[in-house]
Each structure stands twice: as structure tokens, then as C-alpha cells.
Design a protein around this nucleic acid. Structure first.
Lengths: 153, 153
DNA sequence: AAATCAGTTGCAAACGATTTGCAATTAAAT
DNA sequence: ATTTAATTGCAAATCGTTTGCAACTGATTT
């Protein structure tokens, strides 16, 4: 199931200190559960579900509910980005300090492998659509689904 | 909340007979709950949640579970298309007999108004992405979100 | 029109993801 | 070391959706 797709990413793992700093900055505590969660997120390039995070955490390190609360908080602080692959559970990925990169994913419908798609097309079209319909603050959600090389029989 | 956005649709409401025919064709019964559900879908151009359908149904006409089952069946038969606007509940819309049109939506994040976007861009790009990553049977999900004219304060 | 049978339904219980109330803990400031 | 607001674990509660099952009903047959 789990597969590490070859990425040309610069793999710039964020310093833990930079992460905890962001929490501290907002008058939030750096608790052991949070540190553990950040440690896991730091080591994954692709979005993880709360359950997956929970599974990687040492035995009784932290409650599932705590993870849900942590992800919610960190999402508000802009530390993680939430993804919806349409399979019923949210996934989260760390967001770099200045890294506001907007990109999409190619997800294998069988093994759930995730490939990041660098580009983001709609950009210009999005503006046109917004204007044409009088909408403001328009954003979009775009994900691709298919069978990865390994899952094709 | 509910808003009827001016559409230039040809409003080709499908004949009930054509719909029930599709069910019958597959050895399925035209029950009163199903007829009622189809009647409601026939009158809505935009995807509805099962709860919304349930709400429009006369008092005790049909159980919520029955609607879930009906939508699941009709989705398999290709009679309805399922949409995921990311708000936690699925939405369904009737699909015309030959109508395989693939399109997207612009959804107001405040009042949930839905505007259909005729075009579908990624088409070509999708092929490129699939090839570039060795994926097959690639499809995509694209929805736009923003504030509709009426909800902008 | 009555009999027949597979497809359906209502209802309640089951589910999986996510949230929340609350008393007990704990990180961080004093 | 003290104080206090933030946080946690745990269990119960929500929500959308699914499912088991006995009773029911179209559609077909006789």
C-alpha cells in the first residue's frame, strides 16, 4: 500500500524549533503529544489521515481526539493544509513557513499512492469564472484520480 | 439560503417514463418512494443532498434510508451523478439518457448556491499528467468555492 | 383476478469519522 | 514553588451513511 514515489522535492524538512515556535507565538503550549505529531508530519511528504498519524505514534503517546484537536488548531494557524481525497477522511500535510504553494494531487484509487502535481492551471480561468458570475474570494479544489503504474494489472 | 440562479439551460426535464423505464429495464421496481424521488430530482437542476430530497418529500412518503438506497442504486445504473462539495454530505443530480457531460460547479461558501460551469479545462492537461506519471483511467474532481453576489456584504 | 416471488421498505441498530463536555494534567509565566 | 490558562484522556454525543431483518409490494404467472 504505502509507497514512496520518487520526488524531486528539495525535501526541506522544517526544523522542529521553527514549528514549535509558531505554536508558542500564539500562546499555545508545546506538549508532548503535539511535539510527537509534528515529528511525524515532518517526516512525511504526503498528506496523512489522523488515523495514520495515530498509528505511527508510540503506543499510548496520545489520544486520537487530541490529534483531531491538534490538526484543527494547526490548520487555523496555517501550519498544516487539509486535503479531501473524497474517501471520507481528511488528510493533513505540513506547510512550510513561507510556503504558500498551491498544488494538486494524483491519487491512485487502489493503493492510495499520492503524487504531487506541481502546476496549478485554473489560476487564470478561476479569475474569469469569478468575474463572470460575480463571485469573490474564489478558490478551487482539484484532484486527479486513476490507477498508478503498480496497480495496473 | 435556497436560491434559484438564472440559468440558460435548455431545461429539458426528462420524462418520468424514460426514467422509470431505465429502472424497469434492470429488473427493478417502480415503487412509490422511487417515483416520488425521481419526481423531485426531475424538478431540480442542481445536485441535492439526500436530506434535501427527504425534506421535499410529503410527510411520511419515504424513509431516509430508502433515499440512500435509491440514490446508490440509481448511481450504479448511471441515472444520477454523485457530487462531493466537501461539506460532508453527498449530492445527486439526474443524468440525461445520453447526457455524459462532464462539468464543474461554483459553490457559494455561505448560502450554498450552486452555479454550473459549462467548460472543463484540464481535459488535455489531464492526459499529459496521466502519461507523465504512468497512471491510467485518470479522471478529476474540480470545484470552485467563493462568495456569491448576494452574500457579499 | 388470485397466487407467487424477487425486489423493496421502514425501523432500529451499527458504523466510521469527527466533535465535545468535563475533570484531571501540565507547560509556561510569575 | 505558585498560579493559571491551555491541554489531555476518556467517554459520550453528532452526523452522514449503511445494514440486518421481518413485513410488504410491484411485476409476472397462472
Amino acid at each position: 500500500m504505502k509507497k514512496t514515489c520518487a520526488h524531486k522535492h528539495a525535501e526541506k524538512k522544517q526544523e522542529l524549533s521553527s514549528l514549535t515556535g509558531r505554536l508558542r507565538r500564539e500562546a499555545h503550549k508545546i506538549t508532548s503529544p503535539r511535539a510527537a505529531i509534528l515529528e511525524i508530519l515532518r517526516h512525511h511528504a504526503h498528506p496523512l489521515t489522523n488515523k495514520e498519524i495515530f498509528a505511527e505514534l508510540p503506543k499510548g503517546e496520545c489520544d486520537l481526539a487530541t490529534i483531531y484537536r491538534a490538526m484543527q488548531l494547526m490548520e487555523e494557524l496555517g501550519m498544516v493544509k487539509r486535503f479531501d481525497f473524497g474517501d471520507g477522511s481528511a488528510r493533513f500535510k505540513l506547510v512550510g513557513e513561507g510556503d504558500e504553494s498551491h498544488h494538486h494531487h494524483l491519487i491512485c484509487t487502489r493503493c492510495a499512492e499520492v503524487v504531487e502535481i506541481g502546476e496549478c492551471f485554473p489560476e487564470e480561468i478561476e479569475r474569469r469564472i469569478a468575474r463572470a458570475n460575480g463571485f469573490t474570494g474564489v478558490t478551487h479544489r482539484l484532484e486527479f484520480f486513476g490507477l498508478c503504474p503498480g496497480c495496473q494489472k
